[in-house]
Nucleic acid binder design. Structure first.
Length: 233
DNA sequence: GCGACAG
DNA sequence: ATCTTGTCGC
């Protein structure tokens, strides 16, 4: 199912306003819960693809059975680009369309896995935290790059990890090796999930590839949907 | 002030 | 993110 969305009323128009929204919403993040059990229920991946030329953004949400990793549902949404890409303000670019894709899903998404960061963010309120607060769903962030943070190389074996550190030494996430000898992914807490559990979910979602099946499925779906939404336009 | 910087 | 073919390797 595909739905179409515009930019929400009252959406921040500038960077200062957007940062103020983050500072405001940050207080609503729940960090005290362990989170859903690994391998139980459903896990949903969300991702977004852009065509800046045509001002089009497509989001995909793909629901997997947490035990088998089989796809049990999927949805896409097409929207207008609601914000430029600014490091630290990614959520304002992706969230409206991602919310529409999640809304189009039948049933409960379960744990939501985001392509980006949660707590590991300049103001400790990245995409995964933001999406969690707006939906109430448990969320985690799994990013492909360390952003502005530092880390020591984890051990070679799959499952090895090392702290992802902010300037000042605060642990904001983990560099997690999901494939032996391959560049780690960067896991951080979004909403209602502990870092420990977030890493366990990430490992359960990477039986074969570096990136979680959730983000791989969502990535390919939103790219396909962008092509289709863009043909002839 | 300059550079770096999730997607 | 996106521009982009073949190619090396399991």
């Amino acid at each position: 199912m595909t739905t179409t969305v515009g930019v929400p009323a009252g959406w921040p128009a500038g960077e200062e306003e957007a940062r103020a929204v983050q500072d405001e919403l940050r207080a609503r993040v729940v960090v005290g819960e362990v989170g859903p059990e690994v391998g139980v229920g459903r896990v949903t991946g969300v991702d977004v693809a852009y065509d800046d030329e045509r001002d089009v953004v497509v989001a995909a949400a793909v629901v997997l059975d947490a035990a088998s990793l089989d796809v049990v549902a999927e949805a896409t949404a097409v929207g207008r680009i609601s914000f430029p890409y600014v490091p630290g303000l990614l959520a304002f670019r992706e969230i409206p369309t991602v919310l529409a894709a999640l809304d189009a899903l039948p049933g409960d998404p379960g744990l939501v896995v985001c392509d980006g960061y949660g707590l590991a963010h300049p103001r400790r309120f990245g995409l995964a935290s933001h999406l969690g607060v707006l939906t109430g769903l448990p969320t985690i962030g799994v990013a492909k790059n360390p952003f502005t943070f530092t880390y020591d190389e984890p051990g070679e074996p799959r499952g090895s990890s090392s702290p992802l550190l902010a300037a000042g030494g605060e642990e904001v996430g983990r560099a997690l090796r999901t494939r032996a000898g391959v560049k780690p992914v960067f896991v951080s807490v979004g909403h209602r999930v502990s870092l420990e559990r977030a890493c366990a979910h990430t490992l359960a979602l990477t039986p074969r590839f570096r990136l979680p099946e959730t983000t791989r499925r969502a990535d390919s779906l939103c790219r396909r949907a962008l092509q289709e939404a863009t043909i002839g336009q």
